[in-house]
Simulated assay, not measured.
Amino acid sequence: MNHDHYDDAMLAGWLTRVRSIAVVGASPNPARPSHRVAQFLARHGYRVFAINPGQAGRDIAGLPTYARLADVPEPIDMVDVFRAPEYLAGVVEETLALSPRPALIWTQLDVHDDTAAATAEQAGLAIIMDRCPAIEIPRLRVPPRS
């Protein structure tokens, strides 16, 4: 798939279908984008889990926080990645080890790795890179989850 452009209908479709999101790299610092985006997603009605090994068991943005994706006690629909591009391959591998697997990996602005994307896609996962759901949801007028 070409990861330089995404069709608006495809983006809106994913954001409408997804119910639970793990935010990998969530920060306890309210000034950080990962903190604000996790809060936004939760306010929009998604079930959100913060993933941050150094904060596991604590609260980030009012959300349960886990060390790893595998620690989340329920299925995840989407993995939202707030890690530098060089860590994306590891997040893809961690995602592929889950059962059931999330359907979608979404990477934040400036997080792009074509090799990691190919690995995800070859395993049957969708991947959207270099986009922010907190920007796309209002732009595409995705209604809140109910």
Rank of each mutant, 00 (worst) to 15 (best):
D114C: 05
W14Y: 15
D7Y: 04
I128E: 06
Q39N: 06
I21P: 02
R145V: 13
R19G: 13
R83N: 04
R101P: 05
V24W: 04
R145I: 13
P102S: 04
A12M: 04
D110L: 03
Q108E: 10
T115C: 00
I60Q: 02
L15V: 08
P138S: 14
A118N: 03
S99T: 15
A70H: 07
Q122R: 15
R101C: 02
E93S: 11
N52D: 03
M1I: 00
L69F: 08
V48Q: 07
C132Q: 12
A103V: 12
W106A: 08
I105T: 02
E93Y: 00
A50M: 04
A97K: 09
V24Y: 00
W14N: 02
A134H: 14
L11M: 11
V81L: 01
S34P: 04
A84P: 00
Y46A: 12
V92D: 00
A126L: 07
P75C: 14
R47V: 15
A50G: 03
E121V: 15
D71W: 10
Q122Y: 02
H3F: 00
I137A: 10
C132E: 13
D59V: 09
I51H: 05
V37Q: 12
D8Y: 02
G54E: 12
D77H: 11
P143M: 10
T16Q: 11
S27K: 08
R36V: 11
A103E: 14
M129R: 11
A50D: 04
L125F: 08
A56Y: 10
F49C: 11
V91A: 00
R131P: 06
E94P: 01
A117K: 03
S20W: 10
G54I: 00
A38K: 06
V72T: 10
R58C: 09
Q122W: 02
L125Y: 07
L109M: 10
P133Q: 09
V48C: 06
A70S: 15
H35D: 02
G54T: 10
G13V: 01
A31P: 00
L109N: 07
H3D: 06
P73H: 14
H112E: 14
R131S: 08
V92Q: 01
W106V: 03
A89C: 02
R139C: 09
S27L: 03
P85S: 15
E86Y: 13
P64H: 11
L104N: 03
A70R: 14
L98S: 08
D80C: 00
R101E: 05
G124A: 12
P100N: 08
R47D: 12
I128A: 05
W14S: 01
P133T: 12
S99N: 15
Y46S: 11
V79M: 06
R131Q: 15
W106D: 05
I60M: 03
R19Q: 15
R141P: 01
P53A: 07
A56G: 13
V24H: 05
R47C: 07
D71L: 09
